[in-house]
Nucleic acid binder design. Structure first.
Lengths: 364, 364
DNA sequence: CTGAAAGCGCTTACAG
DNA sequence: CTGAAAGCGCTTACAG
């Protein structure tokens, strides 16, 4: 919002006058570039610094970036509020990674909190990248976007505009390739499921979110890979479930069918399954194992006792900023940048060998 | 970092050309100020917006602030990392309030993560407002500062420079008055201590942090007020303690002296006191009451069972942004802005009437 | 080695 | 109601 401060700040011109040199010399000296196009004698350099000190001169950043180009500001855009009231911030880990990388790259972070504007009724609207048809993000050099609630049409428009940005989380648009960072959901899922099989589980079931996001589908793919592989899985069904639902009847059916290990998309759902199992008189993990493919699902805190894959949010945040830096450093290379972070694993207490399981993986 | 994107970004001049109006009209329309010095017909306004959309115009921040206009960006400066690794963010509540107010005022938030630069040894330095003697915050209209670890010399310089900012938390500098928002620590403390007295506690002790911040001193003042008042307190000692210390011996001494209620600066310390009491064979609160004057103290999670005052961080965050908005709206009024938020109260389970206490407050 | 000048994109009196 | 012009403070060719 500008500088309506009263006493005018000293400028390079003031310094130049006092030091009795030309403005260009001041610019060069202050920026430590008095050895290139503009040269200044050691004595001149001293005079300039002396004048700087005497006047308390400090460069005007706005002018500097106007004349120069970049402003060293990375945008961070989320459709949802960054800091929710319930203290359970979905974004916290990602932001930790983003902040770390930003510090490393010496740039600032612009959070787009003023992107909602007002609807025709005067009420608040949803946040959006384009406000009155104008790309709000443009004030930054480039941006990192994150969140589950994205507007894919806007994203497509953003890709089309050529504005440099990276999404945290894989997003495939019908049109146009975009840069993103994702995690190795497929491989990590396969690994976990194979581990289940290695413990002796032969009949598994995946309770998959009915919302088919890229991550959910990748996990499903990893599950299939493991089931179809030679890890020894005999049956690996998939059931679509609503979020936060405890499918007790479904669970009973699965157990009847001989399922000894239930795989869920997220740890909260896994916790629900465990509750359901308890209600059915089953012990977890003695009678039934439950594992989760993700560690978070919205508003409830993650249950640390669930055996679960961990989404590497912090790493993804850092990588996103670094991909963006690369995008900015080599604009002539227009290829979308991609990075894949490695999921972590939390041991938890809900996975063990099935009852009366073969003690060793079957030999072939 | 500017926009070194290949095709030059459209400027107001481009918009003006396409809309067939003069640049000043574009400026006025885009800033919603086409009802003042510059007037434009509804039709003209439409043409301008249409051109803006068509070209994908968005204002250049640097130019805008150079020319003296605002950029609708509020800076947020913290000496510590905003998003700590341990997920236990000291700043979370404050930021929630800041974000809410920013949304309300339709402005963005600039997080100064690139303010560390490198020391002479190439290692990271502490964050600072002035980088190479330059006020980094200047790119914003004004800033909100927060955190415990401030550099008061920098703050003094910032006050001197006239840059508009508001501190979250009271900070009194030797020189120069600054704007801040604080909480009613003194009154809230007096209220809580009087409540203890009302329950029958006659001999109290305050275990005060040895670090005498403004908040700590205000709490102490409130404690003294309550003790010297007519609430019935007979003795109200103060002991300085180190953070995270469990002063078991001190506790034993106090109990020997007939103290029935221990007051601490923060809830973690109160939890330590409770542990110490247990070790001494005392039940809390049956034998000894423990209350805290604040709900947080660094890296450990707050214990919700402790009877405690609650620092209204979220409110303070929101108020800080609003004070800043006022500072920017009326720059001619150079008086420092101040606001005081009201502390909350958490019942907890560590306060009750002392053993064999008089059932009613003493009559006078 | 040094200086005069253009230009970055915007806002804002000022003149019509 | 609209336009031409100055100026914000800096960087960077360019000319001496």
């Amino acid at each position: 919002m500008g500088n309506p401060r009263s006493p005018r700040r000293p400028t390079q011109a003031d310094v130049a006058r006092l030091a009795q040199v030309s403005p260009s010399v001041v610019s060069a000296v202050v920026n430590g570039r008095h050895d290139g196009a503009v040269r200044a004698s050691e004595q001149t350099v001293q005079r300039v610094w002396e004048a700087v000190r005497q006047l308390g001169y400090s460069p005007n950043l706005a002018a500097r970036s106007l004349a120069g180009g970049r402003n060293n500001i990375v945008g961070v855009f989320t459709y949802e509020a960054v800091f929710p009231t319930d203290r359970l911030s979905f974004f916290h880990d990602s932001l930790t990674g983003i902040e770390e990388a930003a510090e490393e790259l010496d740039c600032h972070l612009l959070l787009f909190t003023g992107s909602r504007g007002r609807g025709q009724d005067g009420g608040r609207r949803r946040r959006s990248i384009y406000k009155d048809g104008v790309n709000t993000l443009q004030v930054t050099d480039g941006a990192v976007l994150l969140g589950q609630d994205e507007d894919r049409e806007e994203l497509a428009a953003l890709v089309g505009s050529g504005f440099p940005f990276v999404y945290i989380g894989r997003r495939e648009l019908g049109s146009g390739e975009m840069s993103y960072v994702t995690a190795d959901y497929t491989a990590a899922t396969r690994g976990l499921v194979e581990r289940c099989a290695g413990l002796g589980h032969r009949r598994l079931a995946l309770l998959r979110s009915a919302i088919a996001s890229e991550a959910v589908l990748e996990r499903e793919a990893g599950y299939f890979e493991a089931c179809r592989g030679d890890a020894g899985v005999e049956s690996g069904a998939v059931h679509l479930v609503e979020p936060d639902t405890v499918p007790t009847e479904l669970l009973a059916t699965l157990v009847d069918q001989g399922v000894t290990c239930v795989v869920t998309d997220d740890s909260n759902h896994a916790a629900s399954v465990r509750s359901g199992a308890t209600r059915l008189g089953l012990r977890v993990p003695e009678d039934l194992s439950v594992v989760a493919l993700g560690d978070f699902a919205g508003s409830r805190p993650d249950d640390p006792t669930i055996t679960s894959l961990l989404t590497p949010r912090r790493e993804m945040g850092g990588q996103a900023v670094r991909l963006l830096a690369d995008l900015l450093a080599r604009p002539q290379d227009t290829a979308p940048r991609r990075a894949v972070a490695t999921c972590g694993m939390r041991g938890g207490q809900t996975l063990q060998a099935p009852p009366a399981a073969p003690s060793a993986p079957r030999s072939r």
